[in-house]
Design a protein around this nucleic acid. Structure first.
Lengths: 217, 217
DNA sequence: TAGACCATCTGTACATTGTAAAAATTGGCG
DNA sequence: CGCCAATTTTTACAATGTACAGATGGTCTA
């Protein structure tokens, strides 16, 4: 149909090359990465519910059925985007903790700030990470990335008697409480219940992470 | 709300009457209430994303275009459901606080339990309440019900210097932190990140509401 | 009581979506 | 060069939201 559009599309394909995924490039170049990029842009712009598989395919310059071969269905594409989001989340949390210095409390607070800032930087992406109805929770990649992020969070809290490989569901209440505090703040802000831009509010909330229960273990 | 208006025609309108389409005349007894009931049942069964306006109309025994007259579009129906959910939420929070006794800390903890139990009792309904992309936040009814619920929450925390009519966004950080703790716990549980059924976990988390900041005012 | 009004509901129609299946394209390998 | 398999398109179909015109019947008025 529009062959000139194809050549233009391939010519302007500026490789962002976020991860180490140089794998297949048959017809389109790297449709898989292009679709993920398109989906990320769509979600960031119109929200998770504003995303559509056909719109992503349109933006990537392919037909509506093209994504099926790479992702199966729309859930597959969203799962891939969420997996990348969890990887970026993990990196942001680690960077935040390291920026906090050496003390455990400072690292915890700094990680809390990083948690909140990551969510506020791209609210729709953070939203997608928790929309489990739209994701394939059985996908190995997603499970791995999720577990990695959760492990970073767990390491920030001294758990009392938690085995190293224990499920997040059975972890110590101190971890759950700290996680819930930060996660709940973010969700209330994203859902319009509170204003995260109120001066000093983020710092005040994150300071609550350092309650005696957490300090004494 | 208006649950006694359906005595006009022959159709008995039991709230849990699924699958039965009572009336087939042109004028339904109380289509508005019937559609809200159908939507609530659909959402509870298949989740917010599994809801469809046509399915709700089908369950109410009317044509696909019938809801338009009462709710405008799908967002209008979801907004009505969310409004009722916030009303029920407010009642549950008040009942929870009253069940806690007279002491401020006990009332706060008991309200926290009620918050969590309300969400876990019908996760999809609670989910809808915060899916602002699907709701008409400008609707006066929803704004009123939301504000009422938020006011109940705010009253449970002694705010330092908050004016009585102040916006939730500018409230004291102690309120935001307490709200975030409970809300975040619920969301993490609903989104499959933690297991709310772990024995004693809810009580342990709610006990964190009684940090010194809250106690000394 | 007759007729008109009007809120309510139906029928139809259209654009959009997800996805299944068959056909077509194309790069790589013998 | 010719075949194979991975990739993409074409086509098709069911479902959805909703706009529009028309049908229906309760109610109000004269």
């Amino acid at each position: 149909m529009n062959s000139d559009l194809n050549s233009v599309k391939m010519a302007q394909q500026a490789p962002s090359d976020l991860g180490a995924k140089p794998a297949q490039g048959y017809h389109h170049g790297d449709l898989r990465a292009a679709l993920i990029d398109a989906a990320k842009a769509l979600i960031a712009e119109r929200g998770v519910d504003g995303f559509s598989l056909r719109a992503a395919a349109r933006q990537a310059g392919v037909s509506a059925a093209a994504p099926a071969h790479h992702f199966g269905d729309a859930r597959g594409l969203l799962t891939a985007v969420a997996t990348g989001a969890f990887d970026a989340f993990t990196a942001a949390l680690i960077a935040g903790a390291d920026a906090g210095g050496m003390g455990r409390q400072d690292r915890l607070r700094s990680m809390g700030i990083a948690y909140i800032r990551f969510a506020l930087a791209d609210p729709a992406r953070f939203d997608l990470m928790w929309r489990s109805a739209l994701l394939d929770l059985q996908a190995a990649d997603l499970q791995r990335s999720r577990a990695a992020a959760f492990a970073v969070l767990a390491d920030a809290i001294p758990t009392r008697a938690a085995p190293s490989g224990s499920d997040p569901g059975t972890r110590d209440a101190a971890l759950v409480a700290a996680w819930a505090l930060v996660h709940g703040f973010v969700r209330l802000a994203l859902d319009g219940a509170i204003d995260a831009d109120a001066p000093g509010l983020i710092e005040d909330v994150v300071a609550r992470l350092a309650v005696p229960e957490f300090r004494s273990g």
